[in-house]
């Protein structure tokens, strides 16, 4: 489904602080499965996840989605692809302060032009599904870490994307909350979604969730 061929990402190329975050990664991610990117901090997990999801463009190499090269797509098309194909769960939740939980969840659907009532209804249903139905009107800064991550998952699902990219989804949570979040992700897999999880949390790998592990170190995939 998603194929990376010799993909590399270099930050500040040609400068003193040039940094190769990802080097010559070739990888296939199969539809409907859970793939985990594992490695210590600075191994390139987040950058690789960003490359897969079209948040950033590769410096070298090719990315293919369903066989179609998306590495050089114009920004407009890449954005539309990102919106329709990928749901992101970020490490720091990346919710927008002072907006309600409901408003945050609805945000990715705003540019789609779907009827407001439909978006709102779906957002409320998703919040119910992740156990936040009663917190819909609360401002996000009032949420606990576990609630914020569940809100982020609901937001990732608002456009019903086939692929969920989760960056350290349990990083700021205790074991009990981490298990809750992983249960939700497992449910997404059962619904047939493709999951790519970047994590170095052992709990993620202990649970019967991950089907394939890709180990990374210094931006390279370990054999």
């Amino acid at each position: 489904m998603i194929e990376l061929v010799g993909v590399g990402k270099t930050f500040n190329p040609g400068r003193d602080n040039e940094f190769h975050a990802v080097r010559e990664v070739s990888l296939s991610i199969e539809a409907g499965r859970v793939t985990a990117l594992r490695g210590p901090s600075g191994s390139g997990k987040t950058t690789l996840l960003g490359l897969i999801g079209g948040l950033t463009r590769p410096s070298v190499g090719r990315l293919r989605l369903h066989g179609r090269d998306i590495s050089a797509l114009p920004e407009r098309f890449l954005t539309a692809l990102r919106r329709d194909t990928f749901g992101f769960v970020f490490q720091q939740f990346q919710l927008i302060r002072d907006l309600s939980v409901l408003d945050n969840v609805m945000l990715p659907a705003v540019p789609t032009g779907r009827p407001h009532a439909d978006i709102r209804a779906r957002a409320l249903r998703l919040l119910d599904e992740v156990g936040l139905g009663r917190r819909a009107a609360a401002r996000v800064q009032w949420l606990s870490g576990g609630e914020a991550q569940r809100a982020a998952i609901a937001r990732a699902l608002i456009n019903d994307p086939p692929v969920i990219l989760a960056d350290e989804p349990t990083a700021h949570l205790d074991s009990a909350l981490s298990r809750q979040i992983l249960e939700i992700l497992a449910e997404l897999r059962r619904c047939g979604r493709t999951l790519v999880i970047a994590s170095h949390d052992p709990l993620v790998f202990e649970m019967d969730l991950v089907e394939r592990v890709v180990d990374l170190r210094d931006g390279r995939v370990l054999a």
């Binding site: 948040l55 920004e75 407009r76 954005t79 539309a80 990102r82 919106r83 329709d84 992101f88 970020f90 990346q94 927008i96 945000l107 990715p108 705003v110 540019p111 937001r155 456009n159």
Partner: peptide, 8 residues
């Protein structure tokens, strides 16, 4: 964040 979520 908005751009990451699919806003162009």
């Amino acid at each position: 964040i908005l751009k990451a979520l699919g806003w162009d």
